[in-house]
Design a protein around this nucleic acid. Structure first.
Lengths: 267, 267
DNA sequence: GACTGTGAAAAGTTTCACAGCT
DNA sequence: AGCTGTGAAACTTTTCACAGTC
């Protein structure tokens, strides 16, 4: 992150704000829906409504990409779809490996977003020998031993980690060692990676906890002063219990820290 | 979002920045790990490292909660765990319903974070009659017809939507109608909700697209000027294809709009 | 001496409002 | 007349750096 790698040959004017990049997929989705309905042009106001942002923000965002609109008219849907796709790097297809084919990994493999074009699921990898060869979403699971070969043979640069928390760092290290430079981490743990490797994290328990925070706020609108349920002096002990609850989320799988067969399957 | 509902009775000094709230679960996780190892106190530096942020940010974040540290010493782990848990509303337990027991919904039901305490999976709901009664993660799936009753009977205020995109808004409306005021949305679609209802969105395809953006940047270090693969004039057509890829992600399930039995379970 | 808590500066993001093109 | 593109203002978040406390 702190890499001073902003060499930029000053060709155009690069350097799109991170906040804007995070919204481009949103716009792309809205645009694609319009494209499918053969809508030829769209105004910033309409598109913004469809994407759930306000129009000033959208126009500002697009201004970082260039001037792709027409004043008095709006944006050409197809053209904008192309420009955003290109900006996001979706005009090429990215082979992706998913490591950890437990419940979540299997769901991801089946997820339309992964199976469809743009991102191609190049391989599914799991440490459990019992899984090896088993097809999930039509793709046979391969054993973790082959991880490095798979990554190299397929030129994979994006890896998805869906293992239990305990295995994530090790898997990450091996992915990176084999040449992966972008990681989407579903394991609820912090990954340490060398400079130049990107990690994005999707954390289900965190999202829920943020919701709980706001939910609590709504409930406590009047009961401002006191907690009702919290025992004041013995609190610290009760705290540990409550926290354990939140902490239990630290395992994608309730038990095993090893990459071993998750006890998740009901059998 | 534009609700001017900042009534705040000025009792203490409320109003924790959103960015801080989003990090509290991270700290909580790191703290709980320390608690389990019976570490009594921790410095901002150590905790920050464990949570993957810098120490100044962490101290600033904690300063919004109050002064829970001791200068020259650090923070009492148990105490801080309690304070953060309380702040997040995790000292009470939240009944949650998951709607849409396809691949993703099943994975969520099995996910440690949902099944563990703090958040209790009160019910699993699916529109497919074939699913009704089937146990997933030990909980029998109930039919969508009963949604309103389930929400009311269990006092559910948090709902998780894991349906295909096409069903999400309708499910959302029904949840909200029945009294749910916080929604975690996994369907890749924008939800419209009345004021006072919170929506958080987890979108797998968006995260991948953001990774692709950065990945592309790394690759294109020298090839600054031209795209190599992009056909310039015929581009707009190729664009549509690439975009279709991204758009295909708009369905949580590749095919069926119904919540048919997921291929997730190996058995 | 070690470490927190916090003002103040810097950086990043959003919103406003309007000039400028079609 | 309608709508984009963008400077400038407002707001939020991060970082700095150090006074204050143990």
């Amino acid at each position: 992150m702190a890499t001073g790698r902003t060499h930029r040959p000053a060709t155009r004017s690069r350097g799109i704000p991170e906040a804007t990049v995070a919204r481009l997929p949103l716009y792309l989705r809205a645009l694609t829906a319009l494209s499918e309905r053969s809508v030829p042009t769209v105004s910033s106001e309409e598109l913004a409504a469809a994407a759930g942002v306000n129009s000033a923000k959208l126009r500002k965002d697009f201004s970082y990409l260039g001037s792709y609109g027409t004043r008095g008219v709006g944006y050409d849907v197809e053209y904008l779809v192309y420009q955003i796709s290109r900006e996001l790097g979706l005009t090429q297809d990215w082979p992706v490996v998913i490591v950890g084919i437990g419940n979540l990994g299997a769901a991801l493999a089946n997820y339309g977003g992964f199976a469809s074009r743009g991102f191609r699921v190049a391989a599914l990898i799991d440490a459990d020998p019992a899984m090896t060869g088993k097809p999930v979403a039509g793709i046979p699971v391969q054993h973790a031993d082959a991880l490095e070969d798979i990554v190299r043979d397929n030129g994979v640069s994006i890896g998805v980690i869906a293992t239990p928390a305990g295995a994530a760092q090790q898997v990450c290290d091996r992915l990176v060692g084999a040449g992966v430079t972008s990681i989407l981490n579903f394991a609820p743990t912090m990954l340490t990676v060398p400079d130049g490797v990107d990690v994005r994290k999707v954390d289900l328990s965190i999202e829920l906890q943020i919701l709980a925070f706001h939910e609590q706020r709504k409930a406590g609108e009047d009961a401002a002063a006191d907690d009702d349920a919290a025992p004041a002096p013995a609190a610290v002990k009760g705290a540990a219990a409550a926290a354990a609850a939140a902490a239990a989320m630290d395992e994608a799988d309730p038990k095993g820290t090893d990459g071993e067969a998750p006890a998740v399957m009901p059998a």
